[in-house]
Amino acid sequence: MLTSKCMKGVNIGYPLKIKAVDLKESEVDFNPDFISRIIPKLDWTVLISAANSIGKNENLPENLLPEYEKNTEFLKRVHHVLLEIDVVNGELICPESGRKFPINNGIPNMILNEDEV
């Protein structure tokens, strides 16, 4: 969802790299319809590389499964990766400029300095 494209000199700024220092896993009610609705809105490759970068791949396939909306087991794993894992402390890194955005207490600091906009 986040990009650094608003920065001066950055063209795409997506996907941001994730460096996780602390992760938190929590339980969120599973709703298969909601997850099925969200999947087409995701860039699947980006999700997989994000999940890999924090070591939480949960055996998600490189390519999206056909008829995934009927596969409850698969939807549950997507649900877990998408909604139940939080980066509590770490940083997001702009793929072009290398600018780091710190994450503290689960809140990314995406405030840019005047000379960066």
């Binding site: 986040l2 608003c6 990314p108 405030i111 840019l112």
Partner: peptide, 9 residues
């Protein structure tokens, strides 16, 4: 998320 408007979404 700490940001101005929605600039980084």
């Amino acid at each position: 998320c700490n940001m101005t408007f929605l600039t980084c979404f």
